[in-house]
Design a protein around this nucleic acid. Structure first.
Lengths: 344, 344
DNA sequence: TTGAAAGCGCTAACAA
DNA sequence: TTGTTAGCGCTTTCAA
């Protein structure tokens, strides 16, 4: 009287069982499962039926052991130790990643990394063949992860670009172009005394959006006095503080380009606190990273980057790189879009 | 002259290599790696040194093949085919999950599931021993996934609860209590003509928040006429439409409880569109699911649920269940908190 | 405390 | 087109 084993323990059907039921060898079953062409219709049918009957699903561990593939990629989010990464941006990227992945056999492992300990653990995980490829979202402009990963020969695609200039497969929004759109819009609507609340200078997004701002201001023939810059860290509070500084020192400002949506919100608050009217008095344009700034009231004119698509493109590029590990690093730049709403 | 193999291909050191270098058997190395007590200090030292020298990391596939553990859990997000799941809520849960996981050896696989096809694929994935446990966030009140998963003997913890009443390990916010807090607050501040914009009746959050609202209204001795209900689907647009209906039919309303933050935003817009002043004319309290309603201007009084903690608690409960698969299903209810801001 | 040996379920030559 | 066979790297009895 052997006791009934718990469901959990009940042996999942193996290749062997399928082979037996179908009356063929394990190799043939394997061929069918893996879509080999060199199988007779009869064998194929028998195997397919047996698989259905038994509810067979390949054991991934056994498969990985021999193929050295894992059918898994990892998304690493390398945050700063102190900062909380902007949720909506991340969630939107993730949505795009999942969508692109849903038509593949690949599974997604998620790794949130803060600090050197966790980073090194992640690096070890990746370096040890646990995944077929890496997607990286890094908040560090000089992160060592990208080079460590690609140096280990593991396919990698990162969001944004490396401030070090090292070549890495990457997908990025057109931050320079987006900032230019913002400035051109402000100038086109008659603004002449511009300022920007820029992002951190140690992040490519920060650098690029500032560069676009400066370029466009120069192109518009604005004097240097009309290109004020204060820096924030992408948070609402920092945007508010930066705007307050701007207003105190340059009361004649009539437009602000905020390099993130959260900072744009802060700018709005600072303007209100200072008794300025938006947009009559001062116009505001923010960069839309999918954070909730669009819920500002009145709604904000923004430069929108296609965040979800960014995630999907990262996957596509990674798949390409996995299929063909050779060749130079490629950068995909996604266009931004100016979305005009009432407050600018 | 064998060509230099690419880094990728270079054999990772195996147990065998470690054993040889340490001058012991593979079994002994395995014991050290897995923390067995029955190893002599000398052997232990030799093995430890060899591991460090070689940079050995166990091959997870080989290990899983024999242990039948995967050291992986999966977070399944079962969305509706049409709806886009609220990003910030999801991202916050994920943050809590990751945080709880970071002190373990477990890896997190993420599965976004929409529609029956993907659901069945996920079920097969889980049922075939790919993961040690499942975390489930479901938007379907009568989802078959929970019972399928736990019926297959795979440890499962879900967020929320099943409308079917089936017993499943779960973690939930105190939605009933939170809604009561909201109503009590409105009553305490002098409101007498209440209404709610409730959530979908096929989701436990919707049902529970409505139940709390009704309970508290009754407890406060409000007449039935003061417990109007309109239903939305948790989106801002639906909140706005519901509030518009409410205002049209019951112009005397002086307070609205919105069962989600996005719907609260919609309510605010509807009130403004109707020329009502907030909060003087009509007070609004929303349920804070970590969506951006708190960015409303003026800020909204909300009932806040601890979303991040919810994720962490789900992990803790799952770990318990994995360690001890027997025993009855348990429900953890997390308290909510009333956060009073200007608009109510 | 240690080692020898038997697989875990699968893929991939190689032979037939 | 099919089957046979030899492992992939690890854990785990079982004996010593």
């Amino acid at each position: 009287m052997t006791p009934e084993p718990p469901a959990r323990t009940r042996q999942a059907p193996t290749l062997e069982a399928v082979a037996e039921l179908a009356g063929v060898s394990r190799a043939t079953v394997s061929r069918v499962v893996n879509g080999s062409l060199r199988v007779s219709p009869a064998a194929h049918a028998a195997v397919t039926r047996a698989i259905a009957e038994l509810g067979y699903v390949p054991n991934q561990a056994a498969r990985s052991l021999v193929t050295r593939r894992t059918d898994t990629i990892v998304l690493i989010v390398h945050e700063r130790p102190d900062t909380v990464f902007a949720d909506p941006f991340f969630a939107s990227v993730l949505r795009g990643v999942n969508q692109a992945l849903s038509v593949t056999q690949l599974q997604l492992v998620l790794l949130q990394v803060q600090g050197d300990r966790q980073r090194d653990r992640a690096l070890r995980y990746v370096g040890n063949g646990h995944v077929d490829g890496v997607l990286l979202i890094s908040l560090h402009g000089d992160d060592i992860m990208p080079m460590s990963v690609s140096g280990a020969g593991v396919p990698l695609v990162m969001a944004g670009r490396l401030l070090t200039g090292d070549p890495v497969d990457s997908v990025d929004a057109d931050n320079v172009g987006g900032a230019r759109q913002a400035v051109r819009h402000l100038v086109a609507t008659g603004r002449r005394e511009l300022a920007t609340v820029a992002g951190p200078v140690d992040m490519s997004v920060g650098v690029d959006r500032l560069a676009g701002y400066a370029q466009a201001a120069r192109d518009a023939g604005l004097p240097a006095s009309a290109t004020r810059v204060e820096t924030g860290d992408f948070t609402e509070a920092s945007g508010q503080a930066a705007a307050a500084r701007l207003l105190a020192e340059h009361p004649t400002i009539d437009a602000v380009f905020a390099a993130s949506d959260l900072m744009a919100l802060g700018v709005l608050r600072a303007l209100r606190a200072a008794g300025r009217r938006v947009p009559d008095d001062v116009a505001v344009v923010g960069f839309d990273d999918a954070a909730p700034a669009v819920y500002a009231d009145p709604p904000l004119t923004t430069v929108r980057q296609p965040v979800e698509r960014l995630g999907a493109e990262m996957v596509h590029q990674l798949l390409r790189r996995i299929a063909d590990p050779t060749g130079d690093a490629a950068s995909v730049i996604l266009p931004t879009e100016l979305v005009i709403r009432s407050s600018a």
